[in-house]
Design a protein around this nucleic acid. Structure first.
Length: 259
DNA sequence: ATGCCTTGCGGAGCAAGA
């Protein structure tokens, strides 16, 4: 079972790139972030023609998440639990093929550090921690994938000293990320790749891509039941080098089928 | 030292991203 996550930075602009990638990799499920499109304009039909059912939780202009799947899925959560008043489209969770809980999440950026936005980010991470803990009790394998807007360590940043005070690298954000790992979740990419300098995002500005000045902020976190089935993982950098690319690259993991 | 791109909105520049 191949599962991937990709911040596409507008699904309407990126649709040809997404269709290309579905053709190449044929993932069983693809988690999308920053679709930046209301549900009624989500390109459901084009994806259906490729054999993918899609569920979108979008909003106008900003945010927006979606899940594409070749396997049957049913919605389990449309919002991250823990705040009735938070209506930003940043979370969507499904039960995939009757046995895997999968969430597509777009964690708040939080810049500038110390601002109201930063407080919202940390609060969101606290809610994610609580929900991640609750999901462990469901008995399902759980995959929490998406744009976490967190560089877990300095190995995940091209210039750690420059980024030390950025909301993506601040202690409070890293601590909240580590707390989720301490529940028993694993960072699927780091199981197979230990070297620094592996990134999932490169700014459009200043030749960041050509100089590999990037950040590793897109992650697939696996519960123990999912992690015991983990066979391989990776970052597919090819789409970042193509015309009209997203500034993020897809991250994927492969799980053994249940025996 | 964020604003050297990109996108959305809306019909010119500004907000937001990370």
């Amino acid at each position: 079972m191949l599962i991937a996550t990709w911040n596409v930075n507008s699904i309407r602009v990126r649709l040809p790139r997404v269709l290309d990638w579905l053709r190449e990799m044929v993932p069983d499920a693809l988690l999308l972030q920053e679709t930046r499109t209301p549900d009624e304009f989500f390109p459901q039909r084009e994806l259906q023609n490729m054999g993918y059912q899609s569920l979108s939780h979008g909003e106008k202009s900003y945010n927006g998440v979606a899940i594409l799947s070749r396997l049957p899925m049913e919605v389990t959560e449309l919002y991250l639990p823990g705040a009735e008043d938070d209506k930003q489209a940043r979370y969507l969770e499904v039960l995939l093929d009757g046995n895997v809980r999968i969430a597509s999440l777009y964690l708040p950026n939080g810049n500038p550090s110390g601002s109201e936005k930063f407080a919202y980010k940390i609060n969101w991470m606290t809610r994610l921690y609580e929900h991640a803990r609750a999901l462990l009790q469901t008995g399902h394998a759980v995959i929490l994938g998406g744009d976490y807007n967190v560089c877990p360590t300095d190995d995940d940043v091209y210039a750690p000293e420059q980024w030390a005070d950025n909301a993506l690298c601040r202690f409070e954000a890293r601590k909240a990320f580590q707390d989720i790992l301490l529940l028993g979740y694993c960072d699927a990419f780091r199981v197979f790749h230990r070297t620094p300098g592996e990134y999932t995002f490169w700014s459009y500005q200043g030749g960041a891509w050509s100089h590999n000045m990037g950040l590793r902020i897109d992650h697939l976190l696996l519960s123990p039941k999912a992690a015991e089935r983990l066979e391989d993982s990776g970052i597919d950098k090819r789409p970042r080098g193509r015309a009209r690319a997203s500034d993020h690259a897809p991250v994927w993991c492969r799980l053994r089928e249940i025996l």
